[in-house]
Amino acid sequence: MNGWILAATVALGGGGAAVLWGVTTGPPARRVIAQNLATSAVCPALLLLSQGYGRPAYVDLALLLALLGPVGTLVFARLLCDDLSEEGASAWALTWTAAGLGAAAVVALCVAVGPGRAMVKLLVVGALLISGNVIASRALAGGFRGVRGG
């Protein structure tokens, strides 16, 4: 019974269900926040899976998601900015909890992987994930107010 895969299952199941519920119901502001949460829920799960399956090559998947997830949220934040209500969509508590969970997962994996190049790669993925998550939340909370022309 592989603990990593169990943790990944819990992360995917819980995070996925919350994201799915958030993106299908509620005002557009909350939907875009749920889309942003999808990245910070699935990326740690991919890291845990790569450790659980014992295949360091899967870290590239998490790296790509950590890079391109926030870019997708920036696309929505910029092109939906007239739909989002005037004060924008800000859910900072959610952002910081997601970032905290991501950081916890990365730290646990670093401990398991041990010092070396793989650990630095995990830290890079973690840094990209958290900074992307925070910047995407910042963009959703009114980062594109000055943009009229699209």
């Binding site: 889309q35 998601l65 997708g72």
Partner: peptide, 13 residues
């Protein structure tokens, strides 16, 4: 488009 983006991430998983 929002739901498709989430679907893409879940499909990747």
């Amino acid at each position: 488009a929002l739901v498709l983006s989430v679907l893409g991430v879940l499909l990747a998983a």
